[in-house]
Every structure is written in C-alpha cells, then in structure tokens.
Design a protein around this nucleic acid. Sequence first.
RNA 1: GCCUCCUUAGCUCAGUUGGUUAGAGCGCCGGACUGUUAAUCCGUAGGUCCCUGGUUCGAGCCCAGGAGGGGGCGCCA
Length: 476
Amino acid sequence: MKQSIKEILSEKPVGQEVVICGWVRTFRNNQFVAVSDGSCIQTMQVVVNHETMDPALLKRITTGAAVMATGVLEESQGKGQAVEVRANTIEVVGDADPDKYPLQPKRHGMEFLREIAHLRMRTNTFGAVMRVRHNLAYAIHKFFHDRGFYYIHSPIITGSDAEGAGEMFRVTTLPLDNVPKTPEGSVDVKKDFFEKMTNLTVSGQLEAELAALALSRVYTFGPTFRAENSNTTRHLAEFWMIEPEVAFFDLKDNMDLAEDMLRYVIGYALEHCEDDIQFLQDRQLQEEKSKPMAERSPMDLTTKLKFVIDNAFERLTYGEAIEILRNSKPNKKKKFQYLIEGWGADLQSEHERYLVEQHFQKPVILTNYPKEIKSFYMRVDDGDKTVSAMDILFPAIGEIVGGSQREERLDVLTKRMEEMHIPMEEMQWYLDTRKFGTCPHAGFGLGFERLVLFVTGMSNIRDVIPFPRTPGNAEF
RNA sequence: GCCUCCUUAGCUCAGUUGGUUAGAGCGCCGGACUGUUAAUCCGUAGGUCCCUGGUUCGAGCCCAGGAGGGGGCGCCA
C-alpha cells in the first residue's frame, strides 16, 4: 500500500524514496507544491526544480489538481515543515481548471462551502471536522465494546409509527400520481411494498430495549430521520444517533454511563486529534473575532474539552432546577421571555442556557421531570408526579443526551399508553418484553452530530456532517 | 410553523441624502523574482448590483411581491 502523508510524517524515512499522492493546495514560487491527501491536517511540501521541469507541466500544477510525485524525503531547508520531498517526477493525474475550480487558497464563508459540499471536504476545516467525526465514532464503538456492549443494528425502515419522537418520513413504492384507494377512500396500504404503512425510523430505542432484555448491554449507532420543520443550528432531518440500552440499570447507572461515555470519547478525540482540534480552535478564535465580547466562547476549544473531562457534571432534579430558575436574576427582573412561575413549567432553551452557561458553568444533568411533559415509556417515580428521565445539557448546544429508566411494569405502562393515546395493538411486540421476564432497564440517546459540534467548536450542525439534510435541502 | 436579517466581481465585503462611467482586498490571467509558507512585486481582464413590478427627471439605494440563504424561537438528539 502507498504511504499516506500522515504515515510518512510519523515515520520520517529521510533519505528514502517516497510517493506522494494527493491534491495541490498551493504552488508557491514555481517551486513548492503543498500537497494534501486528507490523511491529516498537514500538507507535504513537494519541491520541484523549475529549471529542469517541463514548463507546460508546471502550468498544470494548480490548486485542486490531483498529483502523484516521487522523490527522496529530505530535511526541509525552510521553516514551515520538518521534511519535504525533492521531486524526481511529478505527474498531474487530474487537472483542475483554475478558472473554474471554486476553492481558492483563501478563507471562504461556511454558507458558500455548504453550496459546494461535494468539494468542501478538501478544505482544512472540513477535513479536520471529518477526521474528528471519525475518531469520535470509533471511540464510541470502542467505549461500548470494551465494556461488553453489543452493537445492535436496528431497522431503518420501521412499521411502527409510535416511536413517539417526532414527525416521520413516509416510505412507500405506491405511485404518488395514482395512489390506490380503499372503498372507503383512504390510501390502500395493503397494496404497498410492505403491505402496511412504513416510515423511516426516528429512534432505535424500542428495538434496543428488546435486545437489552436478551443481551443485557447493547447499543445502536445509526441514522435516524425526523420530518420536523426545524430551522436551527442544532437540528437535522437526517442525523446519527447512539442509543445504549442496559438491562438491570436504574437512572443513576444510566447517568453514570452517559457521563463516562462523554468523558471517554472527548478524551479520545483530544488524544488522537490534537492537530485537528488545534486547527479548529484557531479557526473558532478567528471566527469569533468579528463577534461582540459577550457572544464569544468563554474558553478556547481545548480548554473547554479538558474542562468537561476534568469536572463532574452537575446533577439536579427538575424541581431543584425550577427553584434555581424561579429565584434567578433574569426571572426576577423579567428578562426571560418565558418566566418561571413554579413547578410544571416546561424548560425553554433560555432556561437551560442559564443553568449551564451562567449558574453552574458546566454540563448539567436534569432528572425527574413531570410525567406530563415526557414520553410514555419513561418509568413513573414514586408519588406518580415525575418520571425517571434525564437530560444532559451542554453549553451552546443544549440537550446532547436524552434518556430514562424505562417503565418495566406492564400495568403502569399500559395505563400510561392509554392516557397518551399510544396505539397498543401495534405495540404488542414491545409489551411482550413486560409480559415475559420484564426487568428494570435504562438507556439514552446521544445525538452524534451534536457531539461532533461540541468537540469541533463548529457553530452549525450542517457543517459537521458531509451532506446535511434540512427542510428544503437534500442536495448531493 | 413563527419572528428577524441578508442577497453588489470567482470569494470576502465597502458603496454617503436617490444623482456622471459601481469600488477594495484576495483569487484568476500575463509578466518579474526564484528556499517559498494563504510567497512577494508590477500589470490586465472580470458586474443581469438575486428576480419581477412600482415610485421618480433619475434607483445598487425607496415601496410591493417572489426566490435563495443566514440567525433566533418552538419541536428535539
């Protein structure tokens, strides 16, 4: 296998011939070709002899062109790099017309790059984001694998429309211009591919619960789809979610697991993506120069990530949070758009941000929410007012994890489903787990892109996934 | 779904109270230089001022509608 630039830079086989394959970033002084192959943030400087090389060939070495260069690795005479390749041969494998190639050796706006998402991974920023994203995904698998969890592949197409997590995308092969109807006039789903109504999954949780009640410790990690018309920097219509589910876990076990996992994967990224994170930190600093002081990040990226690893998350109940908010300055001075009057109020982003960014200044885990504002599958606490739910709130991002201990008691669960109008006939398979060998269990969902957003310091979730899907946009 | 802001050269952005031929930096192209680091220096080219309509002697600028994009809120991960 040919060596990547990352491999060559780590081994530094000075004096040996190497082959560099990649794309031209800059061509300076008719001598120095900075080549990137995306294996790392660094480029390899390929030095060509402009006096002996064919001028027509040199003309074709332009930003974006694919090149293959062979030559001896030498210690660099210049200051910007330790080693460089003195080219014996350089071949332009694929030209990039400089008049038309949209990426220039200069700073571009994120909005512009989003329009050319098919090329934006060739930039330093998106290369770094993609490498960090990969390392976070790998760290998540490693974290669970090392702790005896099994990776469950929950279905993407689901026959259930009661996952309870939001609007769903319909999956059908029926002709839209001539939909078969029943005698009553509704869509005849019996004629559809699966002979029933199907959707893209909004969550693998229910299937993960089935698996947990067989394999004890499981997790899913796959794409999920929400047809919500959400227009924010934190929402995607297609995103990846990690959903661990563990038998015989209670709420505290669940919180411990989530906190350990977040610490582990952030630590993994810090250890394995040092250069990329450093680059992203500088990028963020640059970006924030144009913002007023109050809107800038209080810590630089590395400091922020280390802070999360070194400090325990603040854990408190919903009721305690309400008390803090009720007595807070913005509440008393009526600065909140939604004032907190007392128990039962749904927390808005402004309240979550106050708790995380002002009051505690660290990640916060909120637990035991009123059952009225939470899902049917969450375990009802003693007193019948709250459920064993937990949300982990991160600065700037808000809710990064949502989880709960699940309701394992059949009678309580069916009562809740009735109250919340969940169609029970379709959910018999789910209720079977409560009929046969039910046990306490718990789990949570982690929005992968929100994690990547946090670790990379990017400001829009559309810039941490290669090809974002949002309302009105499914390009590429 | 609601609120708000933006759209001027390939990119990033100026553009005065509505007034002559619409500007800058970078990029591109041409040249010089040849151990550069987003190289530097000199020069050239490059515009449907998002679209449609209106007001006006006159619109990049004002008004209305539309399109595309950003941000905030809601929903949530």
